[in-house]
Amino acid sequence: MARRLGIPRLNLNGTGLDGDGLAVIPVEQVTGTMWLAARDTLARVADLGERHGVQFVLENLNLAVDRPGVPFARAQDCLALVASVDNPHLRMMLDIHHAQIGERNLIALCREALPWVGEIQVADMPGRCEPGTGEISYAAVARALAEMGYRGTIGLEAFASGDPTVAVEAFRNAFTVAG
């Protein structure tokens, strides 16, 4: 499907999500057996990506606000799984909005995860609107990513706080780093 649509990446989550973004089968505690099953499944997914020339990205979510019961939701969990598979056809979708809720210390997280990142998603917190509407210093995140050498995709996954054109311009301004 990715080839038909002309897109390089397909997004994955740690479990099936329903129409409201909640875990179809909520999990309170992830066991060692679940970790091994997830790693084996993701290795098979990476092999599928290799056969079809597509990259899969495992997205971190948050457990505290709007994704309770999702296994492997934390950025550190996604990073551990992706690193353990160690295949360029499986990378991490680092969602900064979710990481701010559950893990904070975003620049250190970016630095640690960067070798395994396939794409970065942004939205401010709280409110899930464009950069500049909440508590995240996206100018600092953008500068740090540029200094780290990140040249990959950064996607805006947010609601416009007002005029959508202004919201997109705020995103563009936040991630335009003077060289």
Rank of each mutant, 00 (worst) to 15 (best):
R3T: 12
R3M: 07
R4M: 05
P8E: 12
R9D: 04
R9I: 02
R9T: 01
L10R: 13
N13L: 13
T15N: 09
G16F: 11
L17D: 06
G19P: 10
D20S: 13
G21Y: 12
G21C: 09
V24E: 07
V24Q: 03
P26L: 05
P26H: 03
P26K: 05
T31H: 03
L36P: 00
L36F: 00
A38Y: 07
D40H: 09
T41G: 12
L42E: 02
R44N: 11
D47A: 15
L48W: 12
R51M: 13
R51K: 15
R51V: 03
V54S: 13
Q55Y: 07
V57P: 01
V57Q: 01
L58M: 11
N60K: 07
L61R: 08
L63A: 14
L63E: 14
V65E: 11
D66S: 09
R67A: 15
R67H: 15
G69D: 11
F72Y: 04
F72E: 09
A75L: 04
A75P: 05
Q76G: 11
A80W: 00
L81G: 07
S84M: 06
D86Y: 01
P88V: 04
H89Y: 14
L90M: 04
L90Y: 03
R91V: 10
M92T: 10
D95R: 06
H98R: 00
A99N: 13
A99K: 04
Q100G: 10
I101F: 09
I101A: 14
E103V: 10
I107T: 15
L109M: 15
C110M: 10
C110R: 03
E112H: 12
L114W: 02
P115C: 08
W116N: 09
W116D: 03
V117S: 02
V117I: 15
E119V: 15
Q121H: 08
V122Q: 12
A123N: 08
D124Y: 13
P126C: 04
G127R: 01
G127K: 01
C129E: 11
C129P: 00
E130W: 04
P131K: 00
G132E: 06
G132Q: 03
S137F: 12
S137I: 00
A139G: 14
A139W: 09
A140C: 06
A142T: 10
A142H: 06
R143G: 10
E147P: 00
M148P: 05
G149A: 08
G149Y: 03
G149I: 03
R151Y: 13
I154S: 01
G155P: 03
G155H: 07
L156T: 06
A158M: 10
F159C: 08
A160I: 00
A160P: 09
G162P: 08
D163C: 11
D163S: 07
P164Q: 13
P164F: 11
T165M: 06
T165Q: 14
T165F: 05
V166H: 13
V166C: 08
A167T: 00
V168A: 11
V168G: 04
E169W: 10
E169Q: 15
A170M: 06
F175M: 06
F175L: 12
T176M: 04
A178S: 09
